[in-house]
Amino acid sequence: MHGAVAPGWLLVALCAAAGVACLLRTRSAVEEQRRTAGDEALMGFGMAAMAVPTAVLAPPRWAWLAYAAVFGAAALRALWAARTSPPHLHHAVGALAMVYTAAVMAVAPGAHGGHGSSGVPLVTGALLLYFTAYVLWAGVRLIPVAAVAGGGRSAGAMGWSDRPEVARACRLSMGIAMLAMLLAL
């Protein structure tokens, strides 16, 4: 991605940390949570790799094509899973956004996606709107209803990898990172 080196490394750190948290969530006792966590770990680590500042490492064209292929396969898998589990639809949108980002970088790695003076391309704008709405929605969902109501489960009642707020925080972090990557495109 383009832009300053320090913010780029912060984006790499955010995505890698989300990837690690998601990877740790794959220890869940619930199969669907393990599968979802694995998909999200792939997304976090892939976003971290793609966010490395180009001033430090400028990947060759084939690397961007490899990213597009990996995330294209992830999008197909998520679309297939979305038939029975609607939350996978968001994973498909995220993976397709990664395919789009990689394709733009493969075509014009030094041209900031070819935006130029004509403004933001339609696909980039649509993805920015989607991820902005998603980040706002996910942020609101992090507000614990039980804490507001004064009750709820005890923290020791479930394993760390089964805590829904950890999954929500990971998804929120990756949504914010996706917004940053799309803005830098």
Results as ranks from 00 to 15, higher is better:
Ser118Thr: 13
Val123Ser: 00
Ser85Thr: 05
Ala106Tyr: 00
Arg141Leu: 11
Tyr100Thr: 05
Arg153Ala: 14
Ala97Cys: 11
Gly159His: 13
Val148Asp: 05
Ala82Asn: 03
Tyr100Gln: 02
Tyr130Lys: 12
Arg141Tyr: 10
Pro109Ala: 04
Val148Tyr: 09
Gly151Ser: 13
Ser161Ile: 00
His91Tyr: 04
Ala108Gly: 09
Leu127Lys: 01
Pro86Asp: 06
Val145Cys: 06
Ala108Met: 09
Pro109Leu: 05
Val104Arg: 12
Leu122Lys: 10
Val145Leu: 13
Leu142Asp: 06
Pro86Trp: 03
Ala155Gln: 11
Gly156Glu: 08
His90Ala: 14
Ala106Gly: 04
Ala126Asn: 01
His112Glu: 10
Gly113Gln: 06
Val148Arg: 11
Ala102Thr: 04
His91Ala: 06
Ser85Ala: 13
Thr124His: 10
Val104Asn: 06
Ser154Glu: 09
Arg153His: 11
Phe131Ser: 08
Met98Glu: 00
His112Met: 09
Arg163Lys: 15
Leu129Cys: 14
His91Cys: 08
Ala95Pro: 00
Ala157Gln: 13
Ala133Thr: 09
Leu129Asp: 07
Val104Cys: 12
Ser85Gln: 12
Arg83Tyr: 00
Val107Phe: 06
Val104Asp: 08
Val99Glu: 01
Ala82Cys: 11
Met158Gln: 14
Leu136Ser: 02
Gly94Trp: 02
Gly116Ser: 06
Ala108Trp: 01
Ile143His: 12
Gly116Glu: 03
Leu142Lys: 03
Gly125Glu: 00
Arg141Val: 05
Pro144His: 14
Ala138Ser: 15
Gly114Ile: 05
Ser154Ala: 14
Arg163Ala: 14
Ala103Gly: 11
